[in-house]
């Protein structure tokens, strides 16, 4: 949770502004491509284009303001401490791997079924994270991974698929 009292690093202003700017760019691009938004008259109804334009304008201006403010601050007073950008990047490898494997797992559910794919996913990641933390002997870690997989997958299977009948197989 960001600390509300701290004012933001100017480089963060630029990064956040760019992130929001990407959203508004995608939004404008998609809205521009939807011809029926612009060409059809809807009578008393202002049409499906009013709110998108309003919101996208606010978003674009806000994003621009963030980037401009960050740039201004850097020009006025260059930040002294280095390493803001690398702090953003530092630990991202594991989350990226995690998302990639999560996508692979969801695709695998359709092909080899819920239990096998979930078991593999859970086992590999519990073992890998345990290994990364490095707490306990490999043997303990291994049995924790087995136990975690059995309990986790078993419980979810029992509650969602067996009891409630969610059609994931």
């Amino acid at each position: 949770m960001p600390d509300p009292s701290r004012s933001h690093d100017p480089r963060n202003q630029i990064a956040a502004g760019s992130f929001l700017g990407i959203w508004s760019a995608i939004g404008w691009w998609s809205a521009a491509r939807t011809t029926s938004l612009w060409t059809v008259e809807y009578g008393a109804d202002p049409g499906p284009v009013l709110l998108p334009i309003l919101v996208l304008t606010i978003l674009s201006l806000g994003a621009l303001a963030l980037v401009a403010e960050g740039t201004r601050q850097i020009l006025v007073e260059p930040p002294t401490h280095k390493g803001y950008w690398s702090s953003l990047r530092r630990y991202t490898l594991t989350p990226v791997l995690f998302i990639a494997s999560l996508l692979a797992y969801v695709i695998a559910i359709e092909f080899i079924g819920f239990i096998p794919s979930s078991s593999v996913f859970a086992f590999v990641w519990i073992a890998a994270l345990g290994f990364k933390i490095g707490e306990g002997a490999p043997r303990t870690l291994f049995f924790m991974a087995i136990a975690g997989t059995l309990i986790g997958v078993g419980l979810i299977y029992f509650v969602f698929i067996y009891l409630i009948g969610v059609p994931l197989r």
Partner: peptide, 14 residues
């Protein structure tokens, strides 16, 4: 062993 178990399970389910 784990991989083996999982594979067997998959085959049974299949």
């Amino acid at each position: 062993i784990m991989v083996l178990t999982v594979t067997t399970l998959t085959m049974i389910l299949g």
